[in-house]
Write a protein that binds this DNA or RNA. Structure first.
Lengths: 227, 227
DNA sequence: ATTACTAGGGTTCGAGTAG
DNA sequence: TCTACTCGAACCCTAGTAA
């Protein structure tokens, strides 16, 4: 499971890279003629050749040009690009899946702390999540390319945390998903009813900003167990 | 003729379709603004809109245009396109996987029959595959877009059938993969050493051409259990 | 507010062909 | 034989804007 630097590449290059991987180019250097690759992809030899060169210059392909034909090997970086894509399809078709959400730490306004300190929530967190959350949430603004997750979260079950009333104030029900940021266990807290929003709220037993040495604007990867 | 029609679509449309599926568009009609979709994909509102229209006219998307925003649902056809893609990634990353190979029935030259009737092979077929193969093979020429499988088959284990010698003639070792064509059980016979070839040979206890009513040039789907 | 047409510019493609 | 360059054409994207 490779996950160093996940960049997105253009769909057409991805398509070509996948074809090479399908031929076994992940594990070993494979011999392939540009004409042959082109035929498989339904494009010309010239275009296939150009794609190979582009993939190479992006560092997604290793290449040895012999006299008879070239040998190609998908690099680690290339593998991680394909792996991300594979994860996307898993999200689409599988019920239980670990999803990577990338985004940026943003400053909270203190409402997270206000909510969490409500007995109505924190009692349930202790009981259903088995943690005593540090008071305060970490807010993560998703990268635009990762906001598609939100609908998936919306339609997934999660761990139910019931809403309640306190005096004249109402606190809505939320659902939680087990998650981690760089091996630190945490939970994603997701409101059951909300308007579309690209920000995720995360709680944990530890103070995440300290434990992970995070500041505003830092980019983080949150691994969420959706089910 | 009335077969499910898994067509390939352009990588860029596939990319857009996947984004919609990721948002849950497989199961229910989802509200999405073209501007929003564009942002997620890193393209303009206009292009996203055009993609939606193209996907719609290809019958991959169902669409209800309201006053506020449009509702989109991925059709069955759209799902099968995405499913194929998902299978591709499975082939890349998973060890054991069922693979669909599409191709055309082509006339054999009778060598299949000659080989199979060799005791050295047929004894092993009975013992290791548990079948008494009908004498003769079905030859399938893969569509260009499916030839990538061959390398995968080459690097997979399969069920070993040992080679042998008969007098001065040598019969090479092959490997078999359990397979089926439209629910008829069969086995793909794959030579361990061969030059690159886009034709697959299939054996079965039944006479496949009769059982499936196949003639030369007919298109067939072979489901192979690779491992 | 949101979709989608048109026009223009930029990118990608493939035939011819050089290396 | 095979890869890959040039360049004209086809394709695709976006800004402006209509509906």
């Amino acid at each position: 499971m490779p996950t160093p630097i996940p960049e997105r590449i253009s769909p057409r290059l991805l398509h070509t890279l996948k074809a090479l991987a399908k031929r076994g180019g992940l594990k070993m250097s494979i011999p392939i003629k540009s004409e042959e690759l082109g035929r498989e992809l339904g494009i010309s030899q010239q275009t296939a050749s150009k794609h190979i060169l582009e993939l190479f210059s992006l560092g997604l392909l290793e290449r040895m040009l012999g006299t008879r034909n070239q040998m190609l090997l998908v690099t680690q970086k290339g593998q991680s690009v394909l792996w991300m894509e594979y994860q996307d399809y898993k999200v689409v078709f599988e019920e239980n899946v670990k999803v990577l959400a990338r985004g940026m730490v943003i400053g909270g306004l203190g409402e997270g702390r206000y909510y969490l300190n409500q007995e109505g929530y924190s009692k349930q967190f202790r009981k259903k999540l088995g943690i005593m959350p540090y008071s305060g949430t970490l807010n993560i603004r998703l990268l635009p390319s990762h906001t598609g997750l939100i609908s998936k979260l919306r339609s997934s079950e999660g761990i139910d945390i019931e809403g309640f009333s306190m005096g004249h104030r109402t606190f809505g029900s939320v659902k939680c998903f087990p998650a981690r940021i760089k091996d630190v266990e945490c939970f994603l807290v997701f409101p059951r009813r909300s308007h579309y929003d690209d920000t995720l709220e995360v709680i944990s037993a530890k103070h995440l900003r300290t434990a992970l040495n995070l500041s505003d604007e830092d980019e983080v990867e949150l691994e969420i167990e959706v089910s």
